[in-house]
Deep mutational scan, measured.
Amino acid sequence: GMDVRRLKVNELREELQRRGLDTRGLKAELAERLQAALSGPSSG
């Protein structure tokens, strides 16, 4: 899988935006949010 901790802030935001998620917050928050999205149930 993707290691969200290795991504830069702008990369985290890009991935979040692609999934329609909130791109605001600290890098740690963005990484946590993206990780949750990646490990969560895949819809679609």
Rank of each mutant, 00 (worst) to 15 (best):
S43W: 11
S42M: 14
D3M: 07
L30V: 01
L34T: 00
G44E: 11
L38R: 04
D22S: 14
A37V: 08
L16V: 01
L21I: 05
Q17W: 11
R6E: 10
M2F: 14
L16P: 00
L34N: 00
R19V: 03
T23K: 05
R5G: 12
V4E: 02
S39R: 15
S42I: 13
R19E: 02
L30G: 00
D3A: 08
E14R: 15
E14F: 14
L7I: 03
A31D: 03
R6F: 11
R24L: 06
L7F: 06
E14A: 15
E15T: 02
S43D: 13
R6W: 10
G25P: 00
R5Q: 11
A31C: 14
P41V: 13
A37K: 03
S42P: 13
N10M: 08
E32H: 11
A36M: 09
A37P: 01
A36N: 10
L16D: 01
R18T: 04
L12P: 00
L30N: 00
L7V: 02
A37N: 05
P41R: 06
L26A: 14
D3W: 15
R13N: 01
V9F: 10
R33V: 02
K8A: 10
G44H: 13
A28H: 14
R5V: 08
R19P: 02
G40R: 12
M2G: 07
R5H: 15
Q35D: 05
L16R: 00
T23Y: 08
E15S: 03
R19M: 09
L34W: 02
L16H: 00
R18E: 04
N10A: 14
R6M: 11
L30Y: 00
R5L: 11
A31H: 05
E29D: 08
R24G: 08
D3Q: 08
A36S: 08
E11D: 06
D22R: 05
L12R: 00
R19S: 02
A37E: 05
E32G: 08
N10K: 15
G25D: 01
G44N: 12
E29F: 03
R33K: 04
A37H: 09
G40W: 11
Q17G: 10
S42A: 13
E11L: 05
R13E: 03
L38A: 04
L30F: 01
T23E: 04
L26P: 14
G1C: 14
L34D: 00
L21T: 01
M2A: 07
K8L: 08
S39Y: 14
G25S: 01
V9L: 15
E29I: 07
A36Y: 07
G1F: 13
K8R: 11
G20Y: 03
L34R: 00
L30H: 00
L34G: 00
L21A: 03
R24Y: 06
G40Q: 14
A31T: 07
V9A: 07
L12I: 06
R33S: 01
L34Y: 03
R6L: 13
E15V: 03
R13F: 05
Q17H: 13
A31N: 04
S42F: 11
L38F: 06
R24H: 11
R6G: 10
K27S: 04
L30Q: 01
K27W: 15
R5P: 07
E32T: 10
Q35A: 12
E14H: 12
L38P: 02
L12T: 00
E14G: 07
G25K: 02
L26F: 09
D3T: 07
L26G: 15
R13K: 09
S42L: 13
N10H: 15
V9H: 06
G44R: 08
G25H: 02
V4A: 06
L38G: 03
G44D: 11
